[in-house]
Design a protein around this nucleic acid. Structure first.
Lengths: 220, 220
DNA sequence: GGCCTAAGTCCCCGGGCGGGGACTTAGGCT
DNA sequence: AGCCTAAGTCCCCGCCCGGGGACTTAGGCC
C-alpha cells in the first residue's frame, strides 16, 4: 500500500461524487464514502473533519451550474429579437436544457429543499451569482434596465422548469403532463415562448358562455 | 392505564402529524411517533405494521390539498373575465395562497422530490385529481376545451409558485428576489396576471441598442 | 368472581451512523 | 542504516433505527 495523502484525499473527494450519484444524499455518509474510496473511514474524519466539510471540499472542485456563456454566449439575436422577451425566452429555454443534462445538480436541488448542507449552499450562491451576471449581460446588450415585472416573470419561468425537472425524478405526471415524454418538454418550451412574447391565442368566448356559466353555477 | 385500541390508534396517528410538524420527515420514525404518543413502539408495529402504512393511515385522515371549491367556488368572473386567461390567473393565484397556508403540505412537497412514501403518493394522487376537476369545471363554465398551450402554461405557473413556496423554507432569495417579503409575493401575483393576460409591456428598444450590442460583444 | 383475550410493556437483537483512541508501518530525511 | 513523523488500520463506544419474542395485566364476558 503506497502512502500518499494528496492522492488519497483526491480519491476520497472523488468518491463523494460516486456515492452521491449512486445513492443520493440519503446514502451519503462518511462510512459510505470511505467504502467507495476503499479507505478507512478514520482518514475521512482526520483529513476533512466533518461530513459537511468533506462535502464542501467536493463542492469546491466541481461546477454544477451553467455559466453565462453556456447560456447565451453564442447567441446574438437579430434586432427584431433583441428584446427582453427574446432574451428571456432564450435564457429560460437554455436554462432548462442545461439543467436537464446535470443529474447531480438535480439531486442537489432536491435536497436543498429539505436540509441545506455545504453543497447546496455552494450551489445556491453560485446560482444567484450567475443569474445576476446573466441579467447584467443582457442589460448591457439591450441598453435597458430590467423592470420588476420582467424579473418576476423570469424568476417564475426558471422556478417552474427547475421544479418540473427535479420533480420528474420521482413522479411521472404533473397536471396530466407526462414529465418523461420529450414532447412534453417541447410543449413547455413553446409555453415559455408564448409567455415571454405575451402571444397566447385566446379562443373567442362562445356566445352562450354566460348561459353555460349560470347553468354550471346552479349545478354546483 | 385505560386500555382502548381505537383511542390509542387515533393518538398514534395524531402523533404522526405532530412529529412531522416538529421534525419533518427526517425525524419521522416509529420510535419518534411512539414517544410523541406516549406509547410503546411495539404497538405501532403491531397495529400498523410498517412506518409506511402508519403514514398511509395518517394520510387517509387528512386533506392536504385545496378543493376545487376552495379555489374557484365563490368566484364568477364577469363576461369580460370569463376567459382562459381570467380563470388561469385566478386559479394560480389562489393555488399559491392556499399552498402558502399549508405548512405541512409544503413539507410533503419537499420530501416527494427526494424519496416518495405513502404520504407523498397520496398527496400526488389527490393533487392530480383535483387539478383535473378544476380544469373540467372551468371548461364547463367556458364551454371551450383547454388547448395544449393553456395546459402547459398553467402547469408552468403552478410549478413555479409551488417551487418558490417550498424553496422559501430553506432559502431566502431566488434570483435576487426576497422570498420572505410579502411584496415579492404581490409581485409574483402581478407576474402571473401579466403572463395569463399576455400583457407584458415591452419597453421600446433604444435606438442605440445595436451599437451597445456590438460593444458589449467585443468586451466579452 | 373467574378466566381468557388482547392491550400494553420490556427487552434483546442486528445494523446503521459518527467520534475518536491506540496501534502498525511506509517512506522521507539525516 | 536508522529513526521518526504521519499515513493508514483496527476496534470500541454511544447513539439511533426497525423487528419481534416474551411477558404482565386490564377489562369484557360468562
Amino acid at each position: 500500500m503506497t502512502r500518499n495523502r494528496e492522492a488519497t484525499s483526491a480519491r476520497i473527494v472523488e468518491a463523494v461524487g460516486h456515492v452521491l450519484a449512486r445513492e443520493g444524499f440519503r446514502g451519503l455518509s462518511l462510512r459510505a464514502v470511505a467504502r467507495q474510496a476503499g479507505v478507512d473511514k478514520r482518514l475521512l474524519s482526520r483529513y476533512f473533519g466533518d461530513l459537511d466539510r468533506l462535502i464542501a471540499a467536493y463542492a469546491a472542485g466541481s461546477d454544477f451550474w451553467w455559466t453565462v456563456d453556456e447560456l447565451v454566449g453564442d447567441h446574438l439575436p437579430g434586432p427584431a429579437e433583441n428584446t427582453w422577451a427574446g432574451w428571456l425566452c432564450l435564457a429560460v429555454q437554455r436554462h432548462t436544457g442545461a439543467l436537464r443534462q446535470r443529474a447531480l445538480t438535480q439531486e442537489i436541488l432536491a435536497w436543498e429543499m429539505i436540509e441545506p448542507n455545504a453543497l447546496t449552499e455552494e450551489l445556491s450562491a453560485v446560482r444567484e451569482q450567475r443569474a445576476a451576471e446573466l441579467i447584467e449581460r443582457i442589460q448591457a446588450r439591450l441598453g435597458t434596465q430590467a423592470d420588476a415585472s420582467w424579473r418576476a416573470v423570469g424568476a417564475l419561468m426558471a422556478a417552474a422548469t427547475t421544479y418540473l425537472i427535479v420533480r420528474a425524478h420521482t413522479c411521472d405526471f404533473y397536471l396530466g403532463i407526462d414529465l418523461h415524454a420529450e414532447d412534453s418538454w417541447k410543449q413547455f418550451d413553446r409555453a415559455i415562448e408564448i409567455i415571454a412574447r405575451g402571444a397566447i391565442a385566446e379562443p373567442p368566448p362562445r356566445r352562450d358562455a354566460a348561459a353555460l356559466n349560470a347553468r354550471s353555477q346552479r349545478k354546483t
